[in-house]
Simulated scan of single mutants.
Amino acid sequence: MSSSAAAVYAELRLADERDVPHIRRLSHQMAEFEHLTELFSATESLLSSTLFPTPPPPPFLSFTVLILELSPTPLPPSADAGFPISRRIDLAAPLDDPEADAFASPRGGGKAVAGFVLCFPNYSTFLAKPGLYVEAIFVRAAWRRKGLGKMMLSAVAAQATRMGMGRVEWFVLDWNQNAINFYEGMGAEVMPQWRICRLAGAALEAYKGGDEKDGEESK
């Protein structure tokens, strides 16, 4: 999609199974950006079965993906509450998107997928309230620094408040100072005293039998 005028129209909507190919492509681009492609093993089949089970759970009560699409023509107004959310994005100059054809919307209409956000509920024992954890938020390179990341994260925060939740959380890589500055500018507190702990791969499989792993042989 090449914007002939210096404006595009952004829409943030709930994803469905038709979006899986783009979700995988965006996730792989995110892994490339974060220099973590060696950890990437997602397939379309796995994404379909885990993100879009049958019957589907209500949005934001399980894994929820929001897709960000851009249109060269105006979109219907936003819903009173919830999704889709639409807005006009004014550009300093017309912008060419070399990946537009590869990311053409499965819904047609000349729209292109520009990003996504994936979140799911968590819980704070300190607050005694549920919250939303943002597992992934990503905007394709051509469309960064246009306010689209803020649009997506703000939408998740608004949904959390509508549901009476206590907080929204996510992580940021310590070398990504641009992202840190962006999140702090939105009012987020970056908490350097916390560290992510992870069991995965062989370390996780070692617990498959359910035995405790305390470093000592059973007696």
Rank of each mutant, 00 (worst) to 15 (best):
G210A: 07
N176F: 13
Y9M: 01
A79V: 12
S154N: 05
R13C: 06
R198Y: 08
G187T: 06
G187M: 05
D90F: 03
A114P: 05
M152S: 03
V172H: 06
V8Q: 00
Y9P: 08
A104I: 04
F120K: 03
P74W: 05
L47Q: 09
R13I: 02
P74I: 11
F52T: 03
C119G: 00
L12S: 03
R195F: 09
R88E: 13
E212I: 10
W175Y: 12
P55K: 12
A206I: 05
W175K: 08
Q159H: 03
A142M: 05
F182P: 08
A15M: 06
E32F: 12
S2P: 01
P77Q: 11
M163V: 02
S86A: 12
F120P: 00
F83H: 03
M191I: 09
L36S: 14
F40T: 14
A200R: 11
F171M: 10
S4V: 04
I85Y: 00
S48F: 01
E184H: 07
R18G: 08
S105Q: 09
C197E: 08
F116K: 15
R18E: 07
L51E: 02
D19P: 02
E34V: 07
P58C: 00
A92W: 02
L204E: 10
A157V: 09
S27N: 14
T50D: 11
M165D: 03
E34T: 12
T43N: 14
R13P: 04
P98R: 11
P77H: 08
I196A: 04
K219Q: 14
D211A: 14
L66P: 04
Q177T: 13
A6Q: 03
M186C: 13
K219R: 15
G115S: 11
A5R: 12
R198E: 07
S48T: 13
P76F: 01
I137L: 14
Y207W: 08
I180E: 07
K111S: 09
S218E: 15
P76Y: 00
A81Y: 06
V113D: 03
T54G: 02
A10E: 12
C119P: 07
A79S: 15
S124L: 08
I89W: 04
I67A: 05
F182K: 14
A42G: 10
